[in-house]
Design a protein around this nucleic acid. Structure first.
Lengths: 353, 353
DNA sequence: TTGAAAGCGCTAACAA
DNA sequence: TTGTTAGCGCTTTCAA
């Protein structure tokens, strides 16, 4: 690899002049610029970003900590984030915590050692003292995506209105005549996402004057197996729910399995809605009602907030809450409570495009 | 952030001694080791990996170039890769090409500038001269995952036996009595994956003495929309296929949409098999026969090959071909050609766990 | 066994 | 307008 010295030597100038030309400083003669450009061209010189970063104090790299990259919602977020950061010349150092809160902490520390300029955090757990400590020790800007850490005033946040999403879904189900609604949530308390969704669910029940039956509210690890077990527990209740709100994505497949095992048909025997609008929801037959949000937008805002602080145009952290939207589909189209009024399954083709 | 000098000062030793203690060199007195350890502890010192990398010539970072992180197969690969690399102290710099071959090239160059020690490549296109040139210009070790670049002798490769997978699927369909089998492939010619699968498909037809009807073989960009259109084209043939082999994952959802639109039921009206065993295949009702492979294993081998070269235990690049396995499910269980012999749908519960 | 010095590749400050 | 110098934080000689 050619270095800046090689270029300087070939062009017959000082290394600092090469820098000046390359970085477009004022006060460079056309002649110098030309000679440097020619030398750069001839040697195929590309500046070493690591060395530049060491000197300049900024690595132009952002660390992204995710709980689980296999989750399609997160994969989409990482995709959009990488795109936005890349467009501004930032590299994306990915750190996957793989569902393990201990790795959240480890990842913060390791990314710090790698001198990332900023951090986007979608950790497994948001409230563990170790994580909060690690993030507090980190001096650069932070954007929490779908996470909330009250003690960390320095952090930006991009949140989605999960509470409203859960409420909208429940209201929709109540409108269809459902009175007993089961809830399959992720690990409550561990992230903003699940705290908000669970609160929204409970609030909606209260709004509609429905009793709150603890047996109908499940919280499970986000795995298919846990989803299957929790679903079976709901189905085995003396008075099983007529509608189910399913939460985390990896869990959803377990729910579908459980229903299938019992010969219970979605949309006919039970209404089903999910809190993340994933491919499976749209492809399922019948398509599943879901709370949708613009994930690309979430990522873009996250990138914006971070870049605003990195380019130091912005001194104060901000919190942005983005809207969510209920997409009603055939899985919740049959009205309960007054069978005569049962509507025909909604035409789903528009949704399926 | 405390630097090595701070530690040295506090411990009353030279910076180089701090290094020696930290890196476990021989010839360090217990006393020195103790003082350094105490100072490190007190200051909470963590070595700056960027600076260490600059000096040492190795960044302990690996660049991973992927065609599209949203594809679940790739997300899984990235997950396992990051885990394996992380375990060896390597960071993962993610570069997503987003389906754009030009970004493949850009990504190789940018990762080079970021001084990654090695490259794992799952590019959009594997044969573009620009990409080959960029990879050839790069001096470090390379592992191609599911990609093959004949001109690049320096590269390791981890391949899956996609040809055999496609053949197995076709043979299975022929066994069920199918004579007209449609094929929905990805962009043929652009990657090893699709060249092999398409070849396997054609070979299998020949093996079974079936005519090769070009109208039955489609190649499409890996998007739901393209999948839908290609599927409709197959269905609209004067003599439509009784079985369909669907390829890329993002395309599969389009295929399912198209079948649904036409009121064609998978497993009853048409047999369907897919070449990647994704969540949708297992969750679909009926479950869809698919070619399965151990993606974690692919990633682990990729990491191994790369690390072998990085730690320079290994001087010569290697190519590893991993097996694939057909998972027969209900979507292809009905025998065609002799309707009387139609088997009952396979019990799918074992698969669905 | 430890310290001093040099330098990885780049850039910013200072001088000319 | 350009060159010289110094130094980012670390590690590796070399010398003591």
């Amino acid at each position: 690899m050619a270095t800046i010295k090689d270029v300087a030597r070939l062009a017959g100038v000082a290394p600092s002049s090469v820098t000046r030309v390359l970085r477009g400083h004022r006060y460079v003669s056309d002649d110098l610029a030309r000679r440097v450009a020619a030398a750069v061209e001839e040697l195929g010189y590309r500046p070493d970003l690591v060395a530049a970063g060491l000197r300049g104090g900024r690595s132009h790299t952002v660390g992204v900590i995710v709980s689980d990259i296999i989750n399609p919602v997160i994969a989409q977020l990482v995709d959009a984030l990488e795109t936005a950061l890349h467009a501004q010349g930032y590299g994306t150092l990915l750190a996957n915590s793989h569902g393990d809160p201990a790795r959240d902490v480890e990842n913060v520390e390791r990314l710090g050692q790698r001198r990332v300029d900023g951090l986007v955090v979608m950790s497994v757990d948001e409230r563990s003292p170790e994580l909060v400590a690690a993030l507090s020790a980190w001096s650069g800007p932070i954007v929490l995506a779908d996470r909330q850490i009250p003690g960390l005033v320095r952090a930006n946040a991009v949140l989605s209105d999960h509470r409203r999403g859960a409420r909208a879904l429940v209201s929709h189900l109540v409108d269809q005549g459902h009175r007993r609604i089961g809830y399959l949530g992720g690990p409550t308390g561990s992230t903003y996402v699940w705290r908000e969704r669970t609160s929204g669910f409970i609030e909606a029940l209260e709004d509609h004057g429905l009793p709150r039956d603890p047996a109908l509210v499940k919280s499970a690890r986000a795995t298919p197996d846990a989803g299957r077990r929790s679903t079976l527990e709901l189905l085995d209740l003396p008075e099983p729910p007529s509608a189910v709100v399913a939460g985390p994505n990896p869990l959803l497949s377990g729910t579908l399995q459980a229903l299938h095992e019992r010969g219970i048909e979605v949309g006919r025997d039970v209404a089903l809605g999910c809190l993340d609008d994933v491919a499976v929801a749209v492809l399922h037959e019948p398509p599943i009602t879901a709370v949708n949000r613009d994930i690309t937008k979430v990522a873009q805002v996250a990138a914006e907030l971070l870049l605003a602080q990195l380019t130091s145009a912005e001194r104060h952290p901000r919190t942005v809450v983005l809207p969510v939207e209920l997409r009603s589909r055939a899985s919740t189209s049959r009205a309960f409570g007054n069978a005569e009024a049962a509507r025909p399954p909604a035409r789903a083709s528009a949704e399926r495009r």
